[in-house]
């Protein structure tokens, strides 16, 4: 594997507030900071409404963040950016969505869907080269050349997700945000797609942000994990830190809720309820409690949790 300590993405105090009417503001994401290293998979977990998807979308500029900075490959990509940075961002960073049917244009052939990125960025000289690039990427993701002239509805869910992956990878990105990319798929197909994502990562030295609510899958695919709750990043650490030594009570509660495929264990398991009443997210700061393991909390809170 590549050296995993070169920072490729730095997110600092990123906030995304949505106005709901004149008075109410929804803080979908509030002062979130983290870094992602080159070649690693950074998992983002949390329940619905925790801001994990908002984080992904704000990074790739699908939303315009309220506040904060994002730095990618050493360049600032939030706020106003020039055309060259924009074009770099649009090829080097790609996204894979949850519902492959909704994210593929039903009136275009697979060839045109995948080639759209190439067309926009003029990444080929001849039409032949364009088609060859598409055929090649189709083979890479486990489909074949013959599939190129069909329409999305002719494919199964797993195959559609492969098309989504092909579309993301054809422009040769370095960074891919997968937002619930496997949630809509069947168990056996999920494994196929996850293995494909891992293989692509090894072959192309890709960096992933993997957003999902399936915590066992996140654990399996991620090197580092960020746990989000109510728009805040409450804990960041290596996958084993988060799963074997969770500190924040929310992380503990979340982990205790995952059902294990082990009937004997399940029968006696105790779930931990989460009580937020004496935890103030706004007061707390991300504190490093061991190497590469950060927890959001005030001094008093952290003392209580680590005692």
């Amino acid at each position: 594997m590549t050296t995993k300590n070169q920072v490729i993405l730095r997110v600092e105090n990123l906030s995304q507030h949505f106005k709901l009417g004149r008075k109410n503001i929804l803080k979908a994401m509030d002062k979130v900071s983290f870094t992602v290293n080159k070649g690693e998979t950074f998992g983002l977990v949390g329940e619905s409404g925790s801001g994990k998807s908002t984080t992904g979308r704000s990074i790739i500029r699908l939303y315009n963040p309220t506040d904060g900075d994002v730095e990618f490959l050493g360049k600032r990509i939030s706020g106003k950016i020039d055309k060259r940075t924009e074009s770099m961002l649009r090829t080097k960073m790609q996204m894979i969505f949850q519902d492959p049917m909704a994210s593929l244009n039903p009136r275009k052939t697979v060839l045109d869907i995948i080639a759209q990125g190439l067309d926009i960025h003029k990444l080929y000289k001849t039409k032949k080269e364009r088609n060859k690039k598409v055929y090649d990427i189709l083979e890479t993701v486990g489909l074949s050349k013959e599939h190129a002239h069909r329409y999305p509805h002719e494919f199964s869910g797993g195959q559609r997700q492969r098309i989504g992956i092909a579309r993301a990878l054809v422009v040769d990105p370095e960074f891919v945000i997968a937002d619930e990319a496997i949630s809509a798929l069947d168990v056996s197909i999920q494994a196929q797609v996850v293995n494909l994502l891992k293989k692509m990562q090894e072959e192309r030295e890709l960096t992933y942000i993997f957003i999902a609510h399936d915590l066992s899958m996140v654990r399996y695919i991620s090197d580092r994990i960020g746990v989000m709750h109510l728009g805040k990043m409450v804990e960041i650490g290596s996958a084993s830190n988060i799963y074997n030594n969770p500190i924040h009570p929310y992380t503990k509660s979340l982990l205790s809720a995952i059902p294990h495929p082990n009937p004997l264990l399940e029968r006696y398991r105790k779930r931990v309820d989460y009580d937020k009443s004496n935890i103030d997210y706004d007061e707390g700061e991300l504190v490093e409690i061991e190497k590469d393991h950060f927890v959001l909390g005030t001094e008093g809170e952290i003392k209580r949790w680590t005692a």
Binding site: V187, L215, H260
Partner: peptide, 10 residues
Amino acid sequence: GLLASVPDLN
């Protein structure tokens, strides 16, 4: 196949 295709946390 079904059992082996889900990751186990532990």
